[in-house]
Design a protein around this nucleic acid. Structure first.
Lengths: 96, 96
DNA sequence: GTAATATATGAATACTTGTTCATATATTCA
DNA sequence: TGAATATATGAACAAGTATTCATATATTAC
């Protein structure tokens, strides 16, 4: 399969965004619906700062989307591709 | 979604294996069928050593499989999950 | 306005990782 | 057996990254 270097890099960046256990756990939490940064941090036992840093990367790769409401920011999975990647990966880990 | 720490780590490791442009290009090449290490290296403009190192990681994550024939080793995509992950990711990068 | 809360961000540090170079193992051929 | 070829691997260095801490921005309540 032909793949330009640029697309290879983009694809690698996408998977990079999913290549950390903290980010995986953030996404796992978001599979159930939107959550605030604090709720995520509490649920994961991470500092808000660490979560916020990770969310930034996930946002930049369009894996999550932010919705601001008052002084809170609620995050959700950006689109269905992301859930599909997550589930497919989980499948590979569990049965593959 | 509940996810044990171990599974989060495993999942992150899986995506980590796909999180480098060189490895992505290796897999892209293998999408067309099996190839020797040298053929991969030539096709990608990488040294055999670098390719071999990367293949080792891909093997350990069960993303590729090795078949030895004489003094050559031919690699293929390990199973269908891998192609699916690849295509789904490419889809997200291109249209998403 | 000030205080308090929620999130974001920059810098620093510790950790991880990809490549190169040198060397080792395995296989074929003479 | 010895030479040549294909691949693998260990060590070392450079480049990238996740977290922490301190600080900044934004919003609400008073």
């Amino acid at each position: 399969m032909k793949l330009t270097e640029l697309k290879a890099i983009k694809l690698a960046e996408l998977f990079s965004a999913l290549s950390d256990a903290s980010r995986i756990r953030i996404i796992a939490q978001l599979m159930d619906g939107e959550m605030s940064v604090r709720a995520l941090a509490d649920g994961l036992g991470m500092t808000e700062s660490a979560v916020s840093h990770q969310l930034r990367g996930l946002r930049q790769m369009h894996l999550v989307r932010a919705r601001k409401s008052g002084r809170q920011v609620f995050y959700t999975i950006d689109d269905d591709h992301v859930s599909q990647l997550f589930v497919l990966g989980l499948d590979h880990v569990q049965h593959g």
